[in-house]
Design a protein around this nucleic acid. Structure first.
Length: 772
RNA sequence: GGGCUCAUGGUCCAGGUCGGUUAUGACGUCGCCCUUACACGGCGAAAAUCCGGGGUUCAAAUCCCCGUGGGCCCA
């Protein structure tokens, strides 16, 4: 009989046609019902080419979650979004057009950003679709859309009215050459030569002094404490003593802190607001009160006394002279210092406290902890990342950013009395370009306002994704049915940000947890085990790989190589060789396609054995799918299909299936079992490799999509796995024997069949051409 | 500096909770083989003192302690 499948190998080109059928058939459409399974899909950020191969693997696996849920009979809502707010696109745009954000008209700059995002986004969506992601692309959302930003602003207004937002000083990186704050991502480090100044500090009420080395003597006026390493015996006797700061004569305490390095300078460090990031951390940790020594004009403030008005560098020169004259200087040393400088102006950055908006979070920590306990993490161990983070929260969340491409903070200030005014929620506001919607100041009745220019931290937007997809504030009926959503899949490195902020915000706004399950994936490492990132330049572009080997091969690689929750190495050669398994599956199907599909038959011992092993496979896959760990089914299916079903069972029943020397009844038992096994394998594999399974399913078993099938459930057959080893050992023995006798595999041979395999005798005899 | 996590043939990975066969499988390598699904295949072979050191035990890849190295997050 001619096989229905004639091609000798799976052709990935077929994926395009299948994709079209899915789209036209709208087989993944969603209408809300009472019970829904909603995925809080991470909206990827299109910050530049290429998209990581690790991200492609990540989204493939999220799609496996969706497909698993569909086959479990759930009504799946799988939204697709694109995250478009934030710094990376600003940097990308500046580079692409060779412009500077702050020297470009804001509206113009924003539209350049938007264009860049559109291009990058189109490619990203193309990749996602090519991967077979079964999400709702027709209604994909953008976090910079009017609708989304309205939600971000409305939720802010709500929290503002509840008194959850306040202003406070926060150290910012400040580039006084370009006159702006800059983000951490815009800082580079350069080795600059500078003077290390050794100063003598008197210990109060004694005639002793200690020597402290610093590269920033001009910050003496902002010194709040002196630290030494707790193990540094030179200073043990002075711990807790008051130290008198030279020039200013202020008194500060000597404390211990592990960050002080004994080898550097004299081992004692002065902590000032703010010489560097370490100072910032120490001020926060030790709860010191900051002194603003450098102003926004880049000059020393009045607290610097006689040095006020000078630039830090000038003040440094002068203060060194004064230290010397007044006898506080021990020596100076020329050193090369790793100095943080602005990426663009190359000016050393200053850390200057500026007023920023904060969202309260400290008091919410216990509540978030208990919410976290209610959420099931896959894998369970990654809950620890959240819990550790909650333990370490010691400041509220600074939510304002001095950037352009983000959701605007909806506040107008009275021009006369500076009173802040927040508009009514439900609309998207751009205070930097729009007139204040409030006519009179509520405090002084003035009619003139100034719009806030800052934007939100992008996590303010992304942290309400569960609310956005469930149409919070836009469609109450939809919201009621969909929220809380079911699962948050995401990468492990943003548990402390995205996952945590979502819990915080959704709890603050709805009083409920946003989802009941969190699925945490590791990240893609390059061949050397380093995290892939665009900035390191070690990211592999997934598109050429997918185009070469097809989405299913890529997806099967991602499932079979990545144990859930662990980081994974990406190796293109490895991905390519995965397609061998798809070839195997294809050829098994090709063989079976020459036999009719029949409903039943008289089962022989071999048939019962393989069906029992198949049932074990179903159980194993179920275990894996239940915990969304696709590694488990992928490995189990490959092992069973290749090394049990194809290698032994098919060989054993080949003659019987052809009906050579067997009755029709016996033949039908084999054909029935072959098809039952293959159709089960296809269904088990469908969430992982949706294309090839769909193609084979339609040729062999149905006109309808495999993705509308329910997943197979175990029949709890009697376990016969002990037979598998015996069978494969016997087969190996025959193969080896023929080989050692230089016989062809089809030649006959005389060999005793062990008693334990008596029931399989007829099949084994025909398989090996055994003589009696 | 703090936290989390990982370490098994040339490469990737299983086993580890609950200690006990010959340490799983794949990729790669090598040899033989066209056998009416498949040479994108079949059969077979070589290849691991399970990161190091100590401990518990009759018995440790597995449990405990101390290191070393990688990765990430935070500072």
């Amino acid at each position: 009989m001619e096989p229905k499948i004639s091609e000798k190998a799976w052709n990935p080109e077929l994926e395009k046609e299948i994709l079209k059928q899915w789209e036209e058939g709208k087989i993944y459409d969603f209408t809300p019902q009472e019970d829904n399974y909603t995925i809080d899909t991470p909206p990827p950020y299109p910050s530049g080419r290429p998209w990581h191969i690790g991200a492609a693997a990540h989204y493939s696996q999220i799609d496996m979650i969706a497909r698993t849920a569909r086959m479990a009979g759930k009504n799946v809502y799988f939204p697709i979004g694109i995250d478009r707010n934030g710094l990376p696109v600003e940097l990308y745009t500046e580079k692409k057009h060779k412009i500077r954000m702050r020297e470009t008209e804001r509206g113009e700059f924003l539209s350049l950003c938007r264009e860049a995002l559109d291009d990058l986004e189109a490619e990203m969506i193309f990749i996602m679709k090519s991967l077979g992601i079964s999400g709702d692309f027709a209604n994909y959302y953008r976090t910079d859309s009017e609708e989304y930003r309205t939600l971000t602003q409305s939720t802010f207004i709500d929290l503002w009215k509840k008194g959850q937002v306040y202003l406070a000083n926060r150290p910012n990186n400040y580039d006084w050459v370009s006159g702006t704050t800059i983000a951490d991502a815009e800082i580079v480090y350069e080795d600059l030569s500078t003077k290390l100044v050794y100063m003598k500090f008197k210990i109060k009420d004694t005639d002793k002094e200690i020597v402290i080395a610093s590269t920033r003597p001009e910050l003496l006026c902002a010194c709040r404490t002196i630290i030494v390493n707790p193990e540094d015996e030179r200073y043990t006797q002075y711990i807790g003593k008051k130290i008198i700061v030279p020039i200013t004569s202020a008194e500060v305490e000597l404390r211990t802190h592990h960050s002080a390095q004994q080898e550097f300078g004299s081992g004692a460090v002065m902590v000032c607001s703010y010489g560097d990031q370490n100072d910032v951390a120490l001020f926060r940790e030790l709860e010191l009160e900051e002194i603003v020594a450098i102003g926004l004009d880049g000059r020393m403030t009045e607290v610097a006394g006689e040095y006020s008005g000078l630039k830090p560098k000038q003040a440094r020169t002068k203060i060194i002279e004064d230290l010397e004259t007044k006898g506080f200087l021990e020596k100076t040393e020329d050193i090369v210092h790793r100095t943080p400088v602005s990426e663009r102006s190359k000016a050393p950055i200053e850390i200057i406290p500026m007023e920023e908006y904060y969202l309260k979070q400290k008091e919410a920590v216990p509540k978030i902890k208990s919410l976290g306990q209610e959420i099931t993490f896959y894998p369970a161990m990654h809950k620890q990342i959240l819990m550790n983070w909650l333990e370490s929260i010691n400041i509220d969340w600074p939510i304002s950013r001095r950037r352009y491409y983000g959701t605007e903070i909806p506040i107008w200030y009275c021009k006369k009395c500076s009173e802040p005014h927040v508009p009514e929620p439900g609309k998207y506001y751009r205070p930097w370009s729009e007139k204040c919607p409030i006519s009179n100041c509520t405090k002084c009745d003035s009619t003139e306002f100034v719009g806030e220019e800052r934007t939100f931290d992008t996590w303010m937007d992304s942290s309400v994704s569960p609310l956005f997809i469930s149409k919070f504030n836009r469609d109450d009926e939809f919201f009621k049915k969909v929220y809380p959503v079911s699962i948050r899949p995401q990468a492990k490195d943003i548990v402390r940000t995205w996952l945590y902020y979502t819990l915080l915000r959704c709890e603050q706004l709805t009083g409920k947890k946003p989802w009941s399950e969190a699925w945490i994936m590791g990240y893609g490492l390059d061949e050397n085990g380093m995290k892939m990132s665009k900035s390191k330049g070690n990211a592999i572009d997934p598109l050429p790989v997918i185009e070469k080997v097809g989405a299913d091969t890529f997806r099967f690689w991602s499932a079979s190589e990545i144990n859930h929750g662990q980081d994974f190495r990406c190796n293109e050669q490895k991905i390519e060789s995965t397609k061998k398994f798809l070839s195997k599956l294809w050829n098994v199907s090709r063989f079976l396609s020459s036999f009719p599909v029949i409903e039943s038959g008289k089962l022989a011992a071999s048939d019962e054995w393989i069906l029992s092993e198949l049932d074990n496979l179903v159980k194993e896959c179920k275990r894996g799918y239940n915990e969304y760990n696709f590694f488990i089914p992928a490995i189990a299916i490959r092992e069973f299909t290749w090394n049990v079903f194809a290698a032994h069972y098919i060989e054993m029943v080949k003659a019987r299936a052809y009906g050579i020397d067997f009755s029709d009844e016996e033949r039908d038992g084999a054909i029935f079992t072959l098809h039952k096994t293959l159709s089960t394998i296809l269904k088990l594999l469908a969430p992982i490799t949706p294309f090839i399974t769909e193609h084979l399913w339609k040729i062999l078993y149905s006109n309808d999509s495999i993705h509308k099938e329910k997943q197979v459930t175990p029949e709890n057959l009697e376990d016969q796995s002990y037979m598998t080893k015996e069978i494969s050992e016997f087969n190996s023995k025959v193969w080896n024997e023929k080989k050692s006798q230089n016989l062809s595999l089809k030649d006959s041979i005389k060999l005793e069949i062990p008693e334990s395999l008596e029931a399989f005798k007829k099949d084994l005899k025909s398989m090996h051409n055994l003589l009696d």
